[in-house]
Design a binder for these strands. Structure first.
Length: 261
DNA sequence: ATGGCGCGGTCACCGCGA
């Protein structure tokens, strides 16, 4: 089974990009973030007609929104509202073989990396801590969490460690809470593990650079984390950098893993 | 140090992304 995650930045605008990727890479299940549409306008039948007949999504107007498109049926599906908000940032599915997968769109956190001065940053840190509390209860399960965490955890997950230490996404507060998630809930960052420690690996490049490829000022904000008791089942980690260069791209690229159950 | 671009929407400006 091959699964992927992708922050698509509008599903209505990029449904063709999604199906092109799914077909070319033979993806069985994809988890999307920032679908940016209310459920009524989600292009469900479009994906259904390509064989993704198991679809689950939660959206809202303009912002956020998460979805899963699958060829494989779910045994259960649910969601949790984090920080007592009804923003659509999470969904959870359980497959027939008892594998649990959580899809997250963690708050970006605004500009100022201080929980006292910036409510958006506080929201991000609170969200991560609530994730930790929730996922602690699932340590014994075959568990995968993935999505856009809006945190670049290690030095070579950003184009310049020194510069980015002061910028939201790579501050110590954020990388510490990410580390805490891995430790307390027993996950492995299997994507980072698939590369050398010195390799720069990114999943996002800003729209504001004239030439994303030339300046290469990227960050690795999207993640697939796998329970330590289940990570031996993972192979073939892929980050599809070239997707950033396609026509009308998202600012994020997809990541996939292969999984034997 | 700043701004750069692109999305949706009570739509031609604004909030937001990170």
């Amino acid at each position: 089974m091959k699964l992927a995650t992708w922050n698509i930045n509008s599903i209505r605008l990029r449904k063709e990009n999604v199906i092109k990727f799914l077909k070319k890479e033979n993806i069985d299940i994809i988890f999307l973030q920032e679908t940016k549409t209310i459920d009524k306008f989600f292009p469900e039948s479009f994906f259904y007609n390509y064989g993704y007949t198991h679809i689950y999504f939660r959206g809202e107007k303009s912002y956020n929104g998460v979805a899963v498109l699958s060829k494989i049926p779910f045994k259960n599906k649910s969601f949790h509202n984090f920080c007592n908000l009804k923003d659509t940032r999470h969904l959870k599915i359980e497959l027939i073989n008892n594998i649990i997968i959580h899809n997250f769109y963690v708050p970006a956190g605004g500009d100022v990396p201080d929980i006292k001065l910036n409510v958006k940053f506080k929201h991000k840190i609170d969200f991560m801590n609530e994730m930790i509390e929730l996922l602690k209860m699932e340590v014994s399960k075959k568990n995968i969490i993935l999505g856009d965490f809006n945190i670049a955890p290690s030095e070579n997950d950003v184009w310049s460690h020194k510069t980015l230490l002061k910028q939201v996404s790579h501050t110590k507060v954020e990388t510490d809470v990410f580390k805490k998630l891995l430790e307390k809930c027993s996950y492995e960052d299997i994507v980072r593990k698939a590369f050398n420690k010195e390799d720069k690996i990114f999943s996002w490049w800003s729209y504001r650079n004239k030439d994303w490829k030339k300046s290469n000022r990227g960050r690795r904000l999207d993640h697939i984390l796998v329970s330590n008791n289940f990570k031996k089942n993972i192979s073939n980690v892929n980050i599809y950098n070239h997707i950033r260069g396609q026509y009308k791209p998202s600012d994020h690229v997809p990541i996939s893993i292969t999984l034997k159950d």
